[in-house]
Design a binder for these strands. Structure first.
Length: 836
RNA sequence: GCGAAAGUGGUGGAAUUGGUAGACGCGCUGGACUUAGAAUCCAGUGGGAGCAAUCCUGUAGGGGUUCGAAUCCCCUCUUUCGCACCA
C-alpha cells in the first residue's frame, strides 16, 4: 500500500495557506532570515531545475522557521525579455497575455510542490508598478552621471535584432539564441559600472564560493600600469598608450593602434576611398570579433606613414594600424616593444620593423640577430638612459614616477570591465524614460509621468525592427521642457536591469511612493541566503552588486552587499546532459508529483547529490525516495498505538524531547543503542543543514536511523521505559524530516494530537549524555594494517588499552617473531603497533 | 596557452581534523510471502583466494612523507568549468 500522498499534500497546502504561515512580517521580535531563490523567467511550466533550486531554498527556509527566525522567502517573475516576445509571436498573441498565462501555470505548480513562499510580496518585472521604479533608477543614474549615451561598436545579434552586453556574448555567440555576434556601430545607453570596479573587487563582506569570486575578479580584470603620452610628429595630436611594462619604454620601436582609433578616421578623410589603408581598415573591422581576437590569428597591419615621438628619448617611432590591438581596452593604443613582447615581436619580424634590446638576460646575453622570440623575463636595463643597469622589476616604479614628474605619462589602473550597455532594440522591455527634443536635447521624463508605459497596440513579428519605432502616437510626444514636438527613446532596457534590484523590492513590494522604504530594506537586507545557478556568476550577480552599491550611495539602504551568502546549485541532468527540450531528455515535474507526490520529488532532488553539484535524474532513485517515505509512514502506522500511548509523556506537544527515558537501569543495550541513534541523527542532521548545507547526508542520516528502528524486532516485549525511548525515536523523525518533506511530516505530527504546526515547535536538540557510549570499538593495526578489533570501556587507561590489544589472538599471530618498536593509541579510535 | 575544481564499486554518492574506505540510496543475487505479478520483508553484495577463521588487493597512474594517506607533497594522464592577442 502506498501512503496517501495526494490527500495529505493537498490538505497541508490548504492549511499553510489558510494560516498564512509564510507571510513574513516587516516587524518582529524574532531575528530575520531572508532566503531567496533566483526568480524564474515565466516559460510556462516549472522544470526540474526550478524544482531543485526551490527545494534547496525551501529546506533552508523551513529549517530557519523551526529555529525561530522571522523568515522571508518571496517569489516573483523575471517576465520581460526577448524569449517572452518571441513566444508571443509564435503563438500569435501578445506577450502581456502569454506572460500572464504562463505565470498562472507556474503559480499553480509552486503551490502543488508546497513551497513556502510569501505571495504577498510577489513581483513581476513586466508590470508597470514594478518597472516604473526601473525607470526611476535610470533617472537617478543619469542625474548622477552614471547613465550616459555614446556611440560605439557593439555586439549585435542579427537573430535577436538587438545589442548584447559583453557578458552576454559566449564564445562569440549570443547567449540566448546561439547565433554569431557581429560588431555594429550604434548609439546606446550605458551604466557606468566601471565607476564601481574597485569596490566590486572587494568580497570581504560576503560568504560566496571561491569560484564565483574568482570569475568576477577575472572579469573585472584589474591591472596596474602607466599611461604614456606620445606626440604625433608634425601635429599637435597626442596618442596615449597604456602599458604594464614601463620598464621597456626605451625599447619602443613602433606604435600599434586599431582601425577604430579616433585618429585613424581623422587621417583617413584625406585618403581616397579605395586606398590600401582604407581597404585594410574595412577588412579588419568587418571581421567577426572572435576570429579577430583569437590568439592564433595572424597579426597584420599597415603603416600609416606617420610617426610618433617617444617622450623619454625623442625617438621617432612608426605608427601602424593593426588587427591585434583592441580599441576598448586601456587607451586603445599600444607602444610596441618587439624585443620584450611576443606579439610585437611577431609583428615587427613580419614587417621588418627595427628592434632594440632594453632588458638584458642576466644568464645569457641576448643578441638581436639571434632572437627568435621576445624576452619577457625580468633582467637588467640597457639602452635606457639614466636607468641603465637597474633591475627591470625595480625600475618600473621609478620610470613611471619620473615620467609623471616630467609630464610624459602617469600611473594608472585599467580594468577589463566595460561599462554596461543597457539599450535593447526590442519591444518587450522596460522603456528608457528619455525624450529627445530638437531644442532641449536629451530630456528625462518627469517623475509624475512615470512609468512610461509600453504601448499595448503593437503588431509584433511584422518587421524585424523594434515595433516601438512605428507606433507614432507613442513615439511623438511633447517635450516636457518646452512643449515642442519631440521623440521618445524607443530602446528598452536590458532585462538584467530589472533583476538587479528585485531582491530589494520584495522587502516592500507594494510601495507606491518609492522602490522600497529604507526601514524595510535595512531590516531585511542583505539576503541571508541566495540560491541560483552558476550561469549567473558574472552577469546577474555582478550587476546586482553594482545596483546595490548604487542604491546605498543614493542612501536608500545601508548595506554594502545584496547577498551575504551564496549557494550555486548544480544542474539537473539526464543521461549526462542538461535537461532540454531539444535533447528530448526532459522530465516533467508535474508527472512525478502526480505519481509520487511532492515530498518524494523534493527528497529525491536533495538526496541525489550535494546541492552545488549536478543532479543526475534517475527514475529508480525517485522510487527509492518514495520507498523511504512509505517506510516512514508504515513505521508510524504499525506502531501507532504504542507511540500514541507515550507521546503525551514525551511532551511532544511542546516539541521538547528531553524525556528520552528517565534513566532507568533496566534498559537493554539494544534500546540504549536506539537512543544513541536518535541523538546521533539529530546532531548529524543539524550539522549537515546548518554548517555544511549538505542535505544528501542529512537525509541519509534519517534513513539510517529509520533502519535502526526497524531493526528492533519485538517491540511489544519492551518494558515501559524502553517503549518511551522507542516512541521518541519514531516521533523525532517528522521533526527532522520536515524541512525536506514537509507534508508527510506535518501529517504524522498531527496524528498524535499535536495542535501546533511543526515549524512552531522548534528544532529538536540532541543530548550529549546519550551520545556517550559505555564501550568504544577500537581498531588494532600492525604496520598500518587492521589486524583486530576490540570493545573497550570508556574509562580504560592507555595502558589497559595497549594490554588488551596485545591479547587479541590475531594480533599475537601477526606479532610472532617480531619486536614491538612502538605503540600508538589514538583515543576513541585505534591502536597502532609498529613491529619488525 | 593561462587559471581553478575534480577523478572513489555495476551506479548516484559517503568518509567533516591524516585514523576501520565504500555510510545512505539505486541496481544486482538468493530467500520469505503470493496461484502469479506488483508491493513488502529478510540475507548478501569492491575484486581475488578459502568450508571457515582469515589473507591478498583496492580511492585515475607513478613516486614520496608518515606507525597510518581517498585525504598532505612531487610528476603524469583524464574530465569539467572560467579566461583567452587585455598591452
Amino acid at each position: 500500500m502506498e501512503y496517501p500522498f495526494e490527500k495529505i499534500e493537498k490538505k497541508w497546502q490548504k492549511i499553510w495557506n489558510k494560516k498564512k504561515i509564510f507571510n513574513a512580517s516587516n516587524q518582529s521580535d524574532k531575528k530575520k532570515y531572508y532566503v531567496l531563490s533566483m526568480f524564474p523567467y515565466p516559460s510556462g511550466a516549472l522544470h526540474m531545475g526550478h524544482v531543485s533550486n526551490y527545494s534547496i531554498a525551501d529546506t533552508i527556509s523551513r529549517y530557519k522557521m523551526m529555529q525561530g527566525f522571522n523568515v522571508m522567502q518571496p517569489m516573483g517573475y523575471d517576465s520581460f525579455g526577448l524569449p517572452a516576445e518571441n513566444f508571443a509571436i509564435q503563438h500569435n498573441s501578445h506577450p502581456r497575455i502569454t506572460t500572464d498565462d504562463n505565470i498562472g501555470i507556474m503559480r499553480k505548480q509552486f503551490d502543488m510542490i508546497g513551497f513556502g513562499l510569501d505571495w504577498q510580496r510577489e513581483v513581476s518585472t513586466c508590470h508597470p508598478e514594478y518597472y516604473k521604479w526601473g525607470q526611476w533608477f535610470f533617472k537617478k543614474m543619469y542625474e548622477r552621471g552614471l547613465a550616459y549615451k555614446k556611440s560605439s561598436y557593439q555586439n549585435w545579434c542579427d537573430e535577436c535584432q538587438t545589442v548584447l552586453a559583453n557578458e552576454q556574448v559566449e564564445d562569440g555567440k549570443c547567449w540566448r539564441c546561439d547565433s554569431k555576434v557581429k560588431q555594429k556601430e550604434l548609439e546606446q545607453w550605458f551604466f557606468k559600472i566601471t565607476e564601481y570596479a574597485e569596490e566590486l573587487l572587494d568580497f570581504s563582506k560576503v560568504d560566496w564560493p571561491e569560484k564565483v569570486k574568482t570569475m568576477q575578479t577575472n572579469w573585472i580584470g584589474k591591472s596596474l600600469g602607466t599611461e604614456i603620452f606620445f606626440k604625433v610628429e608634425d601635429s599637435n595630436e597626442i596618442i596615449e598608450v597604456f602599458t604594464t611594462r614601463p620598464d621597456t619604454i626605451f625599447g619602443c620601436t613602433f606604435m600599434a593602434i586599431p582601425p577604430e582609433h579616433p585618429l585613424v578616421s581623422k587621417w583617413l578623410r584625406n585618403e581616397p576611398e579605395n586606398s590600401e589603408i582604407h581597404q585594410f581598415c574595412d577588412k579588419v573591422m568587418n571581421e567577426d570579433p572572435i576570429t579577430r581576437t583569437a590568439e592564433d590569428t595572424t597579426k597584420e597591419g599597415i603603416f600609416t606613414k606617420k610617426f610618433a615621438i617617444n617622450p623619454v628619448n625623442g625617438e621617432k617611432v612608426q605608427i601602424w594600424i593593426t588587427n591585434y590591438v583592441l580599441m576598448d581596452y586601456g587607451t586603445g593604443a599600444v607602444m610596441a616593444v618587439p624585443t620584450h613582447d611576443q606579439r610585437d615581436f611577431e609583428f615587427a619580424k613580419k614587417y621588418d620593423i627595427p628592434l632594440k634590446i632594453v632588458i638584458q638576460d642576466p644568464e645569457e646575453e641576448l643578441r638581436l640577430e639571434e632572437m627568435e622570440e621576445a624576452y619577457i623575463e625580468p633582467g637588467i636595463l640597457v639602452n635606457s638612459g639614466n636607468f641603465d643597469g637597474m633591475e627591470s622589476e625595480k625600475s618600473m616604479k621609478k620610470i613611471s614616477k619620473w615620467m609623471e614628474e616630467n609630464n610624459m605619462g602617469k600611473q594608472t589602473v585599467t580594468y577589463r570591465l566595460r561599462d554596461w550597455g543597457i539599450s535593447r532594440q526590442r519591444y518587450w522591455g522596460n522603456p528608457i524614460p528619455v525624450i529627445y527634443c530638437e531644442d532641449c536635447g536629451t530630456v528625462l521624463v518627469p517623475d509624475e509621468d512615470l512609468p512610461v508605459k509600453l504601448p499595448e497596440n503593437v503588431e509584433l513579428g511584422k518587421t524585424r525592427q523594434n515595433p516601438l519605432l512605428s507606433i507614432d502616437d507613442w513615439v511623438y510626444v511633447k517635450c516636457p521642457n518646452c512643449g515642442k514636438q519631440a521623440k521618445r527613446e524607443t530602446d528598452t532596457m536590458d532585462t538584467f536591469v530589472d533583476s538587479s534590484w528585485y531582491f530589494a523590492r520584495y522587502t516592500d513590494s507594494k510601495n507606491k511612493k518609492l522602490p522600497f522604504s529604507k526601514d524595510n530594506a535595512n531590516y531585511w537586507l542583505p539576503v541571508d541566503q541566495y540560491i541560483g545557478g552558476i550561469e549567473h556568476a558574472v552577469m546577474h550577480l555582478m550587476y546586482a552588486r553594482f545596483f546595490h552599491k548604487f542604491m546605498r550611495d543614493l542612501e536608500m539602504l545601508d548595506s554594502d552587499e545584496p547577498f551575504a551568502r551564496l549557494l550555486t546549485q548544480g544542474m539537473v541532468t539526464k543521461d549526462g546532459a542538461k535537461m532540454s527540450k531539444s535533447k528530448g531528455n526532459v522530465v516533467d515535474p508535474q508527472y512525478i508529483v502526480d505519481r509520487y507526490g511532492a515530498d518524494t520529488v523534493r527528497v529525491f532532488m536533495l538526496f541525489a547529490s550535494p546541492p552545488e553539484k549536478d543532479v543526475e535524474w534517475s527514475d529508480e532513485g525517485v522510487k527509492g525516495a518514495f520507498r523511504f517515505l512509505n517506510r516512514v509512514w508504515r513505521l508510524i502506522e504499525d506502531n501507532f498505538e504504542l507511540i500514541k500511548e507515550f507521546s503525551d509523556h514525551l511532551g511532544s506537544k511542546s516539541g521538547s524531547n528531553n524525556n528520552s527515558g528517565t534513566d532507568h537501569k533496566d534498559i537493554s543495550s539494544e534500546i540504549k543503542d536506539l537512543r544513541f541513534s536518535t541523538h546521533h541523527m539529530i546532531k548529524k542532521v543539524l550539522e549537515d543543514i546548518e554548517d555544511r548545507m549538505q542535505f544528501n547526508t542529512a537525509i541519509a542520516a534519517i534513513m539510517e536511523h529509520l533502519n535502526n528502528i526497524y531493526a528492533i524486532a519485538n517491540v511489544n516485549k519492551l518494558n515501559s521505559v524502553e517503549k518511551a525511548i522507542y516512541a521518541e525515536s519514531c516521533l523525532v523523525i517528522p521533526k527532522l524530516l520536515y524541512p525536506f518533506a514537509p507534508h508527510i511530516s506535518e501529517e504524522i505530527w498531527q496524528k498524535f494530537g499535536n495542535d501546533k504546526l511543526l515549524h512552531e515547535i522548534g528544532i529538536p536538540k540532541f543530548k550529549a549524555e546519550y551520545l556517550v557510549k559505555d564501550e568504544i570499538t577500537y581498531v588494532v593495526q600492525i604496520m598500518g594494517k587492521v589486524r583486530g578489533k576490540m570493545k573497550v570501556s570508556t574509562d580504560a587507561s592507555q595502558e589497559d588499552i595497549k594490554k588488551m590489544a596485545l591479547e587479541i589472538d590475531n594480533v599475537q599471530k601477526h606479532l610472532a617473531g617480531k619486536d614491538i618498536k612502538k605503540m600508538i593509541v589514538v583515543p576513541k579510535k585505534l591502536v597502532s603497533i609498529v613491529a619488525k
